[in-house]
Amino acid sequence: MKGIEEQIRATSSQLLAAGDVQLVIGYGAGSDNSKTMPVFIKRAEDVGKLVFNPLCVSNLANYLLHWNNFEGKIAIVVKGCDSRSIIRLLQDKQIEREKIVVLGVNCPGQLKSGQAEAKIPVEAVLSEATVDNGGIKLQTSGGLITFSLEEGLLEKCRQCESSRPVVSDYLFGEKGFEADKAALQFNDVAALEGAPLEEKSRYWDKYFERCLRCYACRNSCPACSCRECVFDMVEPDWVAKTVNLSDNTAFHMIRAFHVAGRCTDCGECERVCPAEIPLRILNRKIIKDIKELFGAPMPGSDLEALPALSFYAVNDPESQN
């Protein structure tokens, strides 16, 4: 992956030096060696801060919303999954295509945060990384650290629809991770769908009960582009601010509804949840239903395909019965 990293740095340097972009949003070294964090580069001489490795799990697209009053052009590093957010933001008219340069990466796959934290010593500096069928191998100053795909590969990578970005101006990396066809079948959702009602109720009650209502899921979500959020409003009081099972459940249902047809399954909400609520299951249930009911593609995979729930067509499958 050193090659990808070098290409990102070289291209960013060129773009900044030539004045083609005024800002590069990418990944940089994290607060400890098991993490990366977003970096915002405005000068060509700073491109050395950009990294790319299997620790680049987050989706940077959300930062485009933070910078949407920026007067210059912005280059942004996206993986296959993140690129769908770019399409979605374009469809929601939150960004302008001509102001964005997409640095796409054919993503080889990403490492589970928990595994990274457990196995990478704080002082071990990463020098090279590979992801292939043999597993995830990290060459560090503290020696070679390996993970089998089974233990190390992120769940969402295992279910990855396209590791190749659906939109990009520059494309780095030879070939991305190819998920097993069977893993694309929403088996995680189907398993819960098949459970008895009481069990499903217990399952969600257990998680929703412990929600802190910190709204990290919302804040990290690239689909949450409202200027004012219903969860912050006092009038109308869409949902009470109190933290209890009833209001927490209402909060999570409304959050899921608000991203329905627009959620690209980037998994940020679940990644940032301090209470470890399996929010992707909720999002993926809706993605699966929309797919089955409307035959709609994964949101963000096609710039021309409007979200299934945001237009009306006379030949809508729902209006046929």
């Binding site: 219903v230 869409w238 949902v239 009833s246 209001d247 459940t249 209402a250 249902m253 409304i254 509804f257």
Partner: peptide, 10 residues
Amino acid sequence: NPQFIIRALQ
């Protein structure tokens, strides 16, 4: 709005 329905059930 689905939120009216959630509210009623709540």
